[in-house]
Design a protein around this nucleic acid. Sequence first.
DNA 1: GTGTGATGTCATGCG
DNA 2: GACGCATGACATCAC
Length: 632
Amino acid sequence: MKHLKRWWSAGGGLLHLTVLLSLGVLRVDLDLYLLLPPPTLLSDQLLLLGGPASSAYALSPLPASGGWGRAGQLHPKSRDLDPAAPPEEAGANVDGGGQAVQGGGGDPREARSGPLGAGEEETALAEQTAPVPDTGGCASEENEVLRAKHEGVDHSSQHEENEERALAQKENSFQQNNEDENKTAEKPDWEAEKSTEPRNEIHLNGTDISPSLEDLLQLLSSQPENSLEGISLGDTPLPGSISDGMNSSAHHHVTFSQAISQDVNLHEAILLCPNNTFIRDPVAKTSQPQEPFLHSHTTNPEQTLPGTNLTGFLPPVDNPMRNLTSQDLDLNIFEEIDLMSLLATENDLDQIDISQLFDEPDSESGLSLDSSHNSTSVTKCNSSPSMCDEGATGYSTDYDLGAVGGYYQEPNKLCHVDDDSGFHGDLTFQHVFHNHTYHLKPSAPESTSEPFSWPGKSQKIKSGYLEDADRNLSRDERHAKALHIPFSVDEIVRMPVDSFNSILSRYYLTDLQVSLLRDIRRRGKNKVAAQNCRKRKLDIILNLEYDVCNLQAKKETLKRERAQCNKAINIMKQKLQDLYRDVFSRLRDDQGRPVNPNLYALQCSHDGSILVIPKELVASGHKKETQKGKRK
DNA sequence: GTGTGATGTCATGCG
DNA sequence: GACGCATGACATCAC
């Protein structure tokens, strides 16, 4: 029963009642384990890209693109909630929306409802609905738990159909995403750039967001000093209305800065108290020491990207909005950047990608940026490639994370933006991109101001940043994330073999990715099998205990029945003896004298008559019958 | 520090 | 032969 207690302690619960029954001469101790449904388990997908719970931004659910790099964008309209609401509330609203926020709108530690793994979660869910058979006996309660567990295990297969359906949809969307990316990559730079313009409108929600922003700006303008703790809006050249600036292709090169600025304003504004007093995000407070560092990285983007055309998508050097960003913007914003870079799945770094990143409203470019460890990512980028490798892996060097290929080679674009030192060519670009994205965890609760340097695995493990970020990710999940596998571990494990093989063959995957996929699938399958095996073993043990208990009860019953039979036999003997005496007391011989019971006996004949015969004849008769029986 | 249970993983065998 | 499954054995972690 201890097993059961611990087993249920994971997600559900057992109400343990000890009942003492008195059944006549028996006392039976019954351990009643009442099944309590485990707490509602959130979707496993919530774990995938969970973001900080403190994020004040509403993260949209993962769009149909299916890729990892399409989550976490800002929905400015979703922030038309109470401006005074704390960021935690906003995040809670996101999580409470009933949608699987795969883009990282919540603390994964909260999203994960306990130590249950994927299979256990499924089992626990099944156990909630599993009927509990009514069984009797001293071990029936144990069997109830047992059968409930069994049904939970069997119940897991009921989800497979839906999962396969969702998997196929996701796979299609992923393929479509790749196709779209390829199409975009084939376009000239200008065309790709042009193609991103409409997305600006979407990104900012066009007219939907503009009124609110205008209202905010008006509200800010109403301030006598036009300032918010050093944020001088008067120095911020907003090209007309924000919507105009965003929708105008003429202002395309300031889109990014504007986007950031608007988000900053929105973010800052949402922290405004009803009395228009500015409240700083506590996370931002903690990140303030990083500001000089951040600022230095964003000061001269032209130097950051030599030989590239990225400058057009970067905030101008003298853009006051950039100063606003670097000095007063909540540094949580840049965690989103890291998240986006982590989620990036395109192949090459080029101008198109950068423009898409900065302009594409539906992508991670939400620039809704809520991050607290931007400096960490920047520093990682500045680190040597080997360091990036170490930091990127986050686990043993089973997989060389630097060798990312296939469809998932999209570099971390924003790393380019932030880095100001190490880029002297595309090779360096890609190398750093490939590496530093792996260790970026969107859910890192706080940033670390110390420069990133992970000389070894031990130090990497010691890093609180990684500990917090990876704590809720299994090894395979980290591996898959690191290699940009666009499927969750659960999907990889549960998808049919045909789908799995089609994925392996349809997409250009590196050997590393294929190996990782196969390993994840094998380990996942075996993990479930081991869980089932242990449950079966426990089932067998419990059944045996149940059988032992039943047999012991049956033995006691038989003992009681035997005692009762012996007692009845004795009573019958006594009654027979009394009847004998009564009969002989009434018998008289021919002379009227009483018949001696020691010399005579009563014998029933075949016809039912009763004869009184001497015991000698009875004895001889018995001998003759015995002899006849022997002869026969 | 040690024991124990839970869990993940690997190796192996079987269908 | 690939695959899934079952299971023993081992390692690791948490309590």
